[in-house]
Design a protein around this nucleic acid. Structure first.
Lengths: 190, 190
DNA sequence: CTTGAAGTGGAGGATAGCCTCCAGTAGAGT
DNA sequence: ACTCTACTGGAGGCTATCCTCCACTTCAAG
């Protein structure tokens, strides 16, 4: 079992060589992840630096633009999701699919802001997207070939539908779950 | 045929009495509507004033806080939607429902930002929401009673599902339409 | 231990948006 | 035509964030 998912884009390459610098790099990334999740893509960079116990200058050296930081955070999160896709390999086709959709649904809310911010013209964005598609495609196709999933749908449709639906606000988790169920019913072959 | 839908909340009451003042009031509202749609809820108020050919002071007199302006814009748009709900009264139950969903879907994208911004604790928000629910409920119930719409779903579920899905970004309108179709299939009784 | 290159952090200038305030303008009742 | 008052607009003070710059610190190779 050789490295199952390698870094989507060379974030590792950017990581400084010196130990202390590397700690700072990681701290900034972690703080940014939280900040973006909590306050959206315009979270204050100075605030992020502060929470990472790092000077603003350090943040800027590692991530010269806000976009750079966004991309780094995003790539990291996508990678986690891809790993999750491997965990459902042993389930029944339809169950594997719904399970994956579920994990995707849990993943989306935090990343929604990132998605929008990157939509524009980022190269890393495309790389992440295709990595994610590639990891999900087997699950999707298996469900389709087993006749459980309607054949006139594309994976991309599903992703967009789910990510939109989930991003919406709901009264409670029960409602969110019920709505997700409706969507899955719509996806089921008949 | 007496006033079919009266103002949701007394925006009219806030309108100044003097002719020029009223023009300005309306211009600000129109500019704000565009600006919020284009740049989200944090659109610059100074920019809005500029586009309305109005001093920033005028904007502030009419709408002392950003929230006030958001509410006014939102109320106006909801009212339009409610009017649309009356147009489908003569269609078959299921068709009326899908048609209404469609109009709702066209309405949502612009208003999404507003929705989120108001979610918090606005009184006007609740008023708008219930006005919209009230206008959509007959259509919804008719479809359900006709056995076309699954009975284990609430109107609120549909609204949230649709508004989320539609808010998502799509490759093109065809995809948006296809995804909407899937959702409607999920909603159909079987 | 020494040394220099890599890395640090925050002071400070620049910009942008928020909101107040008030001298001036112009509608509408008489 | 006159006046009174509602209404105007934008200058200016305030704050928040962005980002640059460089004197200082610290790691790690020899």
């Amino acid at each position: 079992m050789s490295t199952p998912t390698r870094p989507i884009l060379d974030i590792a390459a950017r990581r400084p060589h010196r130990a202390d610098a590397r700690r700072n790099f990681d701290a900034v990334l972690a703080a940014a992840r939280e900040a973006f999740a909590a306050h959206g893509t315009d979270a204050s960079l100075e605030d992020i630096a502060r929470r990472a116990n790092v000077g603003i200058g350090t943040l800027y050296r590692n991530f010269p633009t806000r976009q750079d930081l966004l991309e780094a955070v995003y790539a990291g999160e996508v990678q986690e999701l891809c790993l999750g896709a491997q965990a459902v390999a042993e389930l029944e086709p339809w169950e594997a699919f719904t399970t994956w959709v579920d994990s995707f649904a849990r993943y989306v809310p935090t990343k929604l802001a990132l998605l929008q911010a990157l939509n524009k013209d980022s190269e890393i964005f495309r790389a992440c997207k295709s990595a994610m598609l590639a990891s999900a495609l087997p699950i999707f196709e298996r469900a389709q070939q087993a006749g459980a999933l309607r054949p006139d749908v594309e994976l991309d449709d599903v992703l967009r539908m789910i990510s939109g639906m989930i991003g919406s606000t709901y009264a409670d988790d029960a409602q969110r779950q019920r709505v997700l169920g409706i969507a899955l019913d719509g996806l089921r072959a008949r």
